[in-house]
Simulated assay, not measured.
Amino acid sequence: MNVRDRSKVMICDDDHGILNMLELIVESAGAQVDKEPDSAKLISRLEINQPALLIIDLWMPNMAGDVIVRQLRADIKFDDVFILCISASLNGKSVAMNAGADKFLAKPFDIADLLSVVNKVIS
């Protein structure tokens, strides 16, 4: 098992507006935030940065979020990463949970719900 820095959070969303908004919210909880808009680059970034929490959108170009979550869950290196999926999709929760996510929040989500997850993981 890796020793992860519990204050590190990686956010992956192809929508730069959402990415920047999420960064501000997560930083307000005291976390160190790293962002990756290109889902195809995410796994290599996770190997380098080793965050405790990954916040990932399900529907993205290049690689869908659920495909990435399945890859992460199949790799023992990422067993201890808490994965929060976000999506505006009607079936997003079932897709996320079936892929192996720890938690799902529907867009638009309540900021308090997001902060609750972040605080749980980084504290």
Rank of each mutant, 00 (worst) to 15 (best):
V95A: 05
S116W: 02
Q32T: 15
G65V: 01
L54A: 09
A74Q: 12
D13G: 13
K35G: 00
M10D: 01
R73W: 06
F109V: 10
G92M: 10
V95T: 08
Q50M: 14
I25R: 09
A112S: 14
L72Y: 03
L53S: 07
F109S: 09
L24T: 14
S94C: 02
V67H: 00
A101V: 12
S44V: 09
N91S: 13
C85I: 14
I11D: 03
L46Q: 04
L58R: 11
M1P: 04
D14P: 05
A40C: 08
D75R: 11
M97E: 03
K8A: 07
L53Q: 11
M97Y: 02
I25W: 02
P108G: 11
V9M: 05
L46E: 01
S44L: 08
S7Y: 04
I25G: 04
A29M: 12
D5N: 15
M1Y: 02
I83F: 09
R6P: 01
R4I: 10
L22H: 07
D57H: 01
S94P: 00
A106Q: 14
I122F: 03
D57L: 02
V95C: 01
K93A: 09
I68Q: 06
V81W: 03
A101P: 09
D38M: 05
D113S: 15
W59F: 10
A106V: 03
M63R: 13
S89T: 05
S87Q: 09
C85P: 10
D14T: 03
I18M: 15
K120C: 09
G100Y: 08
K35V: 03
A112L: 13
L105V: 09
S44I: 02
G65C: 01
L115M: 11
V67Q: 01
K107N: 03
A101M: 09
D75W: 05
S87G: 14
I43M: 04
L90T: 14
I25A: 02
I68T: 02
N62D: 12
S87W: 13
D13Q: 10
D15F: 08
P37F: 10
N2G: 01
F109Y: 15
G65H: 05
N2R: 10
G100C: 06
I43P: 00
I111E: 15
S123Y: 09
